[in-house]
Write a protein that binds this DNA or RNA. Structure first.
Lengths: 240, 240
DNA sequence: CGGACTATTGAGACTCCTCAACTAACGTGG
DNA sequence: CCACGTTAGTTGAGGAGTCTCAATAGTCCG
């Protein structure tokens, strides 16, 4: 696995078996990005940037998990996305970040100044194209979440969340789809998940408990979930 | 106003007063796109493409309104977005469209072959950058809708929908923010709106009726809404 | 080890969804 | 141009599910 900057996405413009995300950058591009970026090591719970702050850099996650969220007036927060290695951070509008980002685990990010990146785009059209693919990829994911959020039932939302997470963590690994890797790591808290799914944490907790009682899931500890009956889980996740 | 191809978005990389979307293309770029595109006139209710079809072209709306939707297994459909002039159509994944698109009004679209567009990107980095800005813009909008959808109350969802629509239609026009243009055109049906907001059409109908009773809205006819008390509407729209 | 945060579980209220009947508008074809 | 059929929209009653408020147990961090 690479340790430098990387971008992973499903390209929109050519066929690909079963929608698996792939690394887009060439070694040369990786080295170039490394040369214009600065590495930042983020301890847990570090806030990388807050919504509304001047957006002078874009970030690429190299290691760790972060959440992207928006603070609502009531003090509550709405989680927009969880970001993993090879994801892009720093969505901006008119020069300001639109979301806040916080590290859920110790993380390593490459900070790329926007000005330098744009200059790189000028010289390497393929590099810019890779970023275009990545943003497109995120747009698709946002649309998938739209469908998920639109559902009413808590169990279904949670099921789709787990399946998405599973697909995410299985990406690029050699885990066969049919067997193992049935244990999923949940770097985020239950509250974060509930927030992400548009539920209260009480409702999510109840839904999770029900799934445990029904033998669909098991929780070895707070940050791991075991999928015991993937067929039933998939049935729940399936949008009507 | 232009009549050729156009892209409108809030650029992410520089400051802009009050987040107003602007035209990104230069005359030269517009002419170039026009030269590689073919114009298509779509009668009402025309399906431009269906989800899953091979995605060999990207479309720019020049005139008219379309909806982008996904068909669920139950036969129902989920509306992902309403698209207006200067919007981009044809989100794809691995060479296939992910959503279906249908014209809600007679529409004119520029059909741009993906291959030719990519070739243009190679020669004009700024053109590709404009597309990058546009996709970023759509990602932000998808995230806004995520917040809106996440809300529980039907009136609030409908209120945010109307305000977004108002902002959209007021864009680029000279309508002062404080006065007129209080009448909004609704090219889509109530069912489409309900679908877009993650509600049943019955619930949306009840919410609309309530707002009429409360003197917040008025419906001259099915496709126009008058905002009578914009203060209260804004209060409803405001996310908590 | 103590305190703050996270998670679980319960009871009650509230909102939306489902099913159903009816009215209004559209547009299709004669 | 009108009549008809189909689709869109309204309104009602009942039920399902989540949200709120509340109390308690369990974790994590300093």
């Amino acid at each position: 696995m690479t340790s430098g900057p990387s971008i992973r996405a499903v390209p929109f413009d050519y066929l690909w078996p079963s929608g698996v995300a792939t690394e887009l950058l060439t070694d040369h591009q990786r080295r170039h990005l490394e040369s214009i970026a600065t590495v930042r090591l983020l301890p847990v719970r570090t806030v990388l940037f807050k919504a509304g702050a001047p957006a002078d850099a874009i970030f690429m996650i190299s290691r760790g998990v972060t959440k992207s969220y928006r603070e609502l007036r009531s003090g509550k927060q709405r989680v927009m996305a969880f970001m993993f290695p090879s994801d892009l951070l720093g969505l901006a509008e008119g020069g300001h970040y639109v979301n806040s980002v916080q590290a859920l685990t110790p993380a390593t990010v490459y900070s790329i100044p926007v000005a330098a990146l744009k200059e790189s785009f000028r010289r390497d059209f393929a590099l810019q194209f890779n970023f275009l693919c990545k943003v497109t990829h995120e747009l698709r994911q946002a649309q998938r979440q739209l469908i998920s959020i639109g559902r009413r039932d808590a169990s279904g939302k949670f099921a789709t969340f787990l399946e998405t997470l599973q697909r995410n963590t299985t990406l690029g690994t050699d885990a066969a789809p049919g067997n193992g890797a049935r244990q999923i790591w949940l770097p985020m808290t239950r509250m974060d998940i509930a927030n992400y799914l548009g539920l209260t944490h009480e409702t999510l907790s109840r839904a999770a408990s029900r799934l445990v009682r029904q033998g669909v899931l098991g929780f070895p500890d707070r940050h791991h979930v075991q999928i015991l009956d993937s067929a039933r889980l998939h049935k729940l996740a399936d949008p009507l």
